[in-house]
Deep mutational scan, measured.
Amino acid sequence: GSPLAQQIKNIHSFIHQAKAAGRMDEVRTLQENLHQLMHEYFQQ
């Protein structure tokens, strides 16, 4: 897949890990990143 698709997959797993660790501030930051990446992805 594209590097962007790979990045989106990575962030999904980072979010999963951050949630499991209870780091909600990190989850929020990652979700904002994910949102931006998704936006770029669909602009392609």
Rank of each mutant, 00 (worst) to 15 (best):
K19S: 06
M24N: 06
Q43R: 08
K9F: 07
H16K: 14
A20P: 01
F14I: 08
F42C: 07
H12N: 07
Q17C: 10
S2H: 11
H39K: 15
L30D: 00
G1T: 12
H35M: 14
L4I: 09
I11C: 05
A20S: 07
Q31F: 11
L4N: 02
Q7D: 04
E32P: 00
L30H: 04
D25R: 03
L30S: 01
I15P: 00
M38H: 03
Q7H: 06
E40G: 05
R28N: 06
F42V: 06
E26F: 05
G22V: 02
T29M: 13
N10M: 14
Q6A: 09
R23E: 05
L30T: 00
N33E: 15
Q43G: 11
I11F: 06
A20M: 11
Q43C: 08
Q36R: 12
E40F: 07
E26K: 05
H12C: 13
F14A: 15
N10V: 11
E26L: 14
I8H: 00
F42R: 10
A20E: 12
I8L: 05
M24K: 05
K19P: 01
H39G: 06
Q6W: 06
K9H: 08
R28G: 05
Q36V: 08
Q44H: 11
L34G: 00
V27H: 02
A21R: 03
Q6K: 06
L30M: 03
E26T: 05
H12P: 01
Q43I: 08
H16W: 10
T29V: 13
I8V: 03
K9N: 06
A5Y: 13
Q36D: 07
A5Q: 09
Q6D: 10
H16G: 06
K9T: 05
E26S: 03
N33W: 15
S13Q: 14
E40S: 07
Q36S: 08
A5I: 14
I11K: 01
D25W: 05
H39L: 15
N33Y: 15
H12R: 14
N33S: 14
Q7C: 04
E40D: 09
L4E: 02
V27K: 01
F14T: 07
L34H: 00
Y41F: 10
H35I: 13
Y41I: 06
Q6P: 02
H35L: 14
Q7Y: 06
F14K: 15
A21T: 05
Q44A: 11
E40V: 08
Q36E: 07
E32D: 08
Q36L: 10
S13N: 13
L34F: 03
A21Q: 07
F14W: 14
E40H: 06
M24H: 12
Q6S: 06
Y41L: 09
L34P: 00
Q44K: 10
D25F: 03
Q17H: 06
N10K: 13
K9E: 07
S13M: 14
G22F: 03
E32Q: 10
G22L: 04
P3R: 08
E26D: 08
N10H: 08
G1E: 11
I8C: 06
Q17A: 14
N10I: 14
Q44C: 13
A21E: 11
E40N: 06
Q36A: 11
H12Q: 14
F42D: 06
N10P: 01
Q43N: 11
E40K: 09
I11H: 03
F14S: 13
L37A: 03
L4Y: 04
A21Y: 02
L37H: 01
I8A: 01
Q6I: 09
H16M: 12
H35N: 11
H12F: 14
H39E: 11
S13Y: 14
F42H: 09
F14C: 05
K19G: 03
D25C: 07
Q31P: 00
R23W: 06
L30Q: 02
Q31K: 09
Q36C: 08
F42Q: 08
A20R: 07
Q17D: 09
A18D: 01
R23A: 07
H12V: 15
H39V: 14
T29R: 15
Q43H: 10
Y41E: 02
E32K: 11
L37C: 00
E26W: 08
I8P: 00
I8R: 00
Q6V: 11
Q36M: 10
H12M: 15
H12Y: 14
Q17Y: 07
N10R: 13
K19C: 11
L4R: 02
D25V: 03
N10D: 13
Q17F: 05
K19T: 10
A5K: 09
R28H: 08
Q17G: 04
Q31A: 07
R23Q: 06
S2D: 12
Q7M: 11
L37R: 02
F14L: 15
K19D: 04
I11L: 15
Q43P: 06
A18M: 06
L4W: 06
E40M: 12
A5W: 15
G1S: 12
I11N: 01
G1K: 09
Q31H: 08
N10W: 12
D25E: 12
T29Q: 14
L37E: 00
S13C: 10
T29C: 09
R28P: 03
Q31W: 12
L30F: 04
P3L: 13
K9P: 01
V27G: 01
L34V: 02
A5V: 12
Q44G: 09
S2T: 13
E32H: 10
N10F: 07
A18N: 02
E26A: 05
L30G: 02
Q7I: 09
F42L: 10
G1L: 13
E32C: 02
R23F: 05
I15L: 08
L34Y: 02
E26C: 04
P3E: 13
Q31L: 14
E32V: 07
L30P: 00
A18P: 00
H39M: 15
G22Y: 02
L30E: 01
G22P: 00
Q44T: 12
A18W: 03
Q7G: 02
H39A: 12
V27N: 01
H16A: 15
A20F: 04
M24W: 15
Q43S: 11
A18R: 01
V27Y: 05
R28F: 07
Q6G: 05
E40P: 02
E32S: 08
A20G: 04
I11T: 04
L37N: 00
L37P: 00
F42T: 07
P3F: 14
Q31G: 04
A18I: 03
T29G: 05
N10Y: 08
